[in-house]
Structure formats: C-alpha cells, structure tokens
C-alpha cells in the first residue's frame, strides 16, 4: 500500500468511484423508468379529482391568459359551471397547492387541497378527509369578495392550533376570487 501512492493509485481511486457512481446512475435510471409514468399518472389523477371536487361538471379547457396580481395562481381551468383555480399560498412549512372552484357569479363552489407539508394533526387537518377537515373547507362555500379568519376580522373559523395554515388557505381563496374577478 505504501508504495502505491502514485498516479496509478489515484487512478484506481477515481475508477472505483466512477464505477460505483455509474452503476448507481444506471440502477436509478431503471427504477425511474418504471416509476415515472406511474407518478405522472397519479399526479394527473390527483389534479383531475381536485378539479372535479370543486367544479361540478368538470372542466373543458385550460385558460393560459389570465390576469393574476397576487402571484399565487398557477393554473386556471374553465368549465360550464365556472372556473377552477390552482393556487399555491405559503403555509406554515412550505407551499400549499390547492384547487379553488369559483362559479360564474364569483362565489366559491368549493376548495380542495392537492398537496401540502403542514403539521400532521394540526395544519394537515385542512386537507384531511375527516369531519373536521370537511367542516373547515365547507366554510368557504358560497363566499365571495374576500375571506379572512376570525382573528383577522373575517368569519372563517381557523383550525385549532393552525392559524397560519388557515390564513394561507384564505389567501389562496382570495387569490382565486380576485383572479375570477379579472376574468369577468
């Protein structure tokens, strides 16, 4: 070993690492080839379900030329009963991706949360398919103009211990309502 501290030895080190890295890369490419379509399909299904949950009748087209002053709206889908807005407000920990359905008169039809990383048992309740989660999301149905939690003078009851998440959801709904106003 001692005499091997030459260029040859360095080359051996580099080669070993190179081999390991390439084997890992090839293996990952294989796994990715199997999982990528499945993941893409799951995501598409999730978006589809979220839209259908907030917009009765589903959507016909995706609108790309919308005006959004809040910077929170990422996608807009239009259907015969109104619009579905994909909005991304920042929650307690990270961005929340949610879908807001707004009817043609500018009233909220419903909201559903696509993905989030809120605290399990607190903020995560906003997205849960439990009684508490349904009740929280149900509060937004029929609202127009702008919404806020009771702490901020509005009439949305925040989730216990998750004011920040509740505020985030409100800001997402407001962004969608504002954007719907711009669409006319």
């Amino acid at each position: 070993m001692k005499t091997e501290t030459t260029a040859k030895y360095v080359l051996r080190l580099a080669l070993t690492l190179l081999i390991i890295t390439s084997v890992v890369a090839v293996a990952l490419a294989g796994v990715n080839a199997i999982t990528a379509p499945k993941i893409a399909q799951l995501n598409a299904e999730k978006t589809q379900q979220a839209i259908e949950a907030v917009l009765p009748g589903g959507f016909d087209t995706e609108i790309t030329d919308f005006t959004d002053d809040t910077g929170l709206v990422s996608k807009v889908y239009a259907g015969e009963n109104g619009y579905a807005f994909e909005v991304t407000p920042s929650g307690f920990d990270n961005t929340i991706t949610m879908m807001v359905g707004v009817d043609l008169e500018g009233k909220v039809l419903g909201i559903s949360i696509v993905s989030h990383t809120e605290t399990s048992g607190l903020g995560a309740v906003a997205a849960a398919s439990t009684a508490a989660g349904e009740a929280f999301r149900g509060q937004f149905v029929g609202k127009s103009g702008s919404v806020s939690v009771t702490k901020d003078g509005g009439d949305v009851d925040a989730l216990t211990g998750a004011t920040i998440t509740s505020r985030a959801v409100c800001s997402g709904v407001n962004a969608a309502l504002a954007c719907a106003g711009n669409l006319g």
């Binding site: 690492l17 890992v24 990952l28 796994v31 199997i34 999982t35 799951l42």
Partner: peptide, 21 residues
C-alpha cells in the same frame, strides 16, 4: 464518498417507489 453514493442510490429508489405506490 463511495458509501454515500450507494446510500443515496438506495434512498432515491425508495423515494421513487413510495411516490409511485
């Protein structure tokens, strides 16, 4: 470095599998 590469490989595999299934 070699260990970390191997471990990162397995972690990514598990990550992708969980995301898909």
């Amino acid at each position: 470095a070699a260990y970390i590469t191997i471990i990162a490989g397995f972690v990514t595999v598990v990550d992708l599998l969980l995301k898909a299934f």
